[in-house]
Design a protein around this nucleic acid. Structure first.
Lengths: 328, 328
DNA sequence: CATGTTCATGGAAACGATTCCATCATGCTT
DNA sequence: AAGCATGATGGAATCGTTTCCATGAACATG
């Protein structure tokens, strides 16, 4: 803070209004005060352009206002939309949002959790990166945590999209088109989607080939390598389901470079709908998930904490465009 | 803050180490202490799992650590990448980032500036939404502000991409392909890009038609309406330059729906490169701007504040793909 | 009239960390 | 030996707000 003019404090307002500081505080926070006193305080507040210091308030109240949000990658459209939902809900409550990016790395997540504890940021929304043990210190410190998109602890409420139903619908759709060799391109941490994939195949009486479940790390390069590898080494493949929009993107790029035609040679369904999915040629069939709603609901949950832990599951939706065709 | 166990304070550490609180503070912040004292303090800190409270620190120091970042829209890939650059730089300094979304609305921006002042968030990076007057209170309050992407005040440093050169190169390229009826689809606040567009046309001896400069608001609906309107009402149009990636997306969608073929009927250049630009059919020719570098450099600037106001201009680059063809 | 309740008010304490300033010990220089 | 400088240390004050608790006034009830 540069040495600009000294900041107006509550004492200045109290003096200007001829009341005590407790009265100013009460007037500004809606406590009891006579109408005449209230008027005098508000007039002095306006005249002096007084803004309460969040620093004093936070220390006294032993908490920082606002919401801490941890996401794996802000440039991934899904998480950007999720964050936007959080920001939108937070704004209607006048709460600022502090965003940390974990890189989907549990170590980095632990560091950021430590920062949140130091700041006594007692309302936290997170897309968890690890197995949930990382969050023990936060819970011990009394932070109110709500998970978004992934649920890794029974004792923490959450908001997730219905992965299982989404994947099941997509797999059923592909099988109905005659596909038997279907690959699932997953990112780490998507075990639930993978399980839904293999379970659905089993329930449809199709052998699940473990080599058709491929995992990629969070980077674009890794996604591209995994997609290209799959398309190159499995010529028998007729369909691919990708676990997220970045993997979908990578698959489209790899197919284009390897002259694999979508949907003639390989059908493609991408988990997550993003604006560009329609711009693609062909427009992609997707499992749309309500990213913004996930974020918004998570924010509502954390701002109204006090309930017992429960997980809200929001529906996904198969949107059929043009990236799937009958088995060749 | 739920009533979990009482938080360990610096007093507990001082007592456990047999020193005064000033000594603990000094040890933890790198001040002078004997090696033996330092050891004792660090051992007690570890044993008690002590974490300094940012609340106490912030009030004493009269500032909040970290960076405040204001962007118009976190779901716009450009701003998400810019934010990612800020986050990346901030992380290497151990500084948290608080993000506010202005919706490109000066009123909302003013509110968020007010919040930053209350929090004594003395390092701020912003993509400004208004004309710069909104920032007077922040400067008066002594906040260190750095603008990103748009520069609206001489007295505030900034980091911007070279709009003028980017637009000039694109216009020259289109003119070299024979285009004379070129439209510019702009978002509000892009007066510099519009000026570069009209100036370049003038310098090439082409009449600038004011009706071929169309403005859209920040939403996807508005972008689509503006693009569709242009394509429908100007059949003489042979090329479009869009001021950002959302406008590019809208133009592609509108062209597709109106059966306007790119590049056969209308050539298209989009300002900003995004991953999906390549996925498009045809892959889009773009003016790439270094969003992440803009954010990273802005964060460097604000964390190393003390310099006199200056604006850093980073280069843009025309990436020719397949969305432009000779004038029909 | 006496007692109890409610509302309004204000001084002081509290919050946890940093920093100021005084003090002491030690080492070096004249 | 005396004076000065430096490093180490700790008690107390500081920061700005909220909240506790005591007090007084007004009103209602028995």
């Amino acid at each position: 803070m540069n040495m600009a003019q000294r900041r107006t404090t509550i004492k200045d307002v109290a003096e200007a209004a001829g009341v005590g500081v407790a009265t100013v505080s009460r007037v500004l926070s809606g406590g009891s005060a006579s109408a005449e006193t209230r008027e005098r305080v508000l007039a002095a507040t306006a005249r002096l352009d007084y803004r309460p210091s969040a620093l004093g308030r936070n220390l006294r109240q032993q908490r920082s206002g606002g919401i801490g949000l941890l996401v794996p990658d802000i440039t991934d459209s899904f998480y950007a939309r999720l964050a936007d939902g959080v920001l939108s809900c937070a704004r209607s409550y006048g709460e600022p949002v502090t965003i940390g990016v974990t890189g989907d790395d549990p170590e980095r997540e632990a560091e950021l959790i430590g920062t949140l504890i130091e700041q006594s940021m007692d309302r936290v929304i997170a897309v968890p990166s690890g197995d949930g043990e990382t969050w023990a210190p936060a819970l011990r410190a009394g932070l109110n945590v709500v998970f978004a998109d992934r649920q890794v602890r029974d004792d923490v409420p959450g908001v997730v999209a219905d992965d299982r139903a989404g994947v099941r619908t997509a797999v059923e759709y592909l099988v109905a088109l005659g596909h038997k060799k279907i690959a699932f391109l997953a990112r780490h941490g998507q075990s639930q989607r993978v399980a839904a994939f293999t379970d659905t195949l089993a329930s449809l009486g199709l052998p699940a080939d473990p080599e058709l479940v491929v995992h990629a790390r969070a980077s674009r390069d890794s996604a591209y390598a995994a997609a290209a590898g799959l398309l190159q080494h499995r010529a028998d493949l007729t369909a691919v389901l990708t676990g997220g929009n970045m993997l979908g993107e990578a698959t489209v790029l790899a197919a284009r470079e390897l002259h694999v035609r979508i949907p003639r040679d390989v059908s493609l369904i991408m988990f997550d709908d993003v604006p560009w999915a329609e711009l693609c040629s062909p427009p992609l069939t997707v499992i749309a998930q309500p990213a913004q709603d996930v974020g918004y609901r998570a924010a509502e949950l954390v701002l109204r904490q006090g309930r017992r832990p429960r997980t809200v599951t929001l529906p996904t939706e198969l949107i059929v465009r043009a990236s799937c065709g009958p088995r060749r």
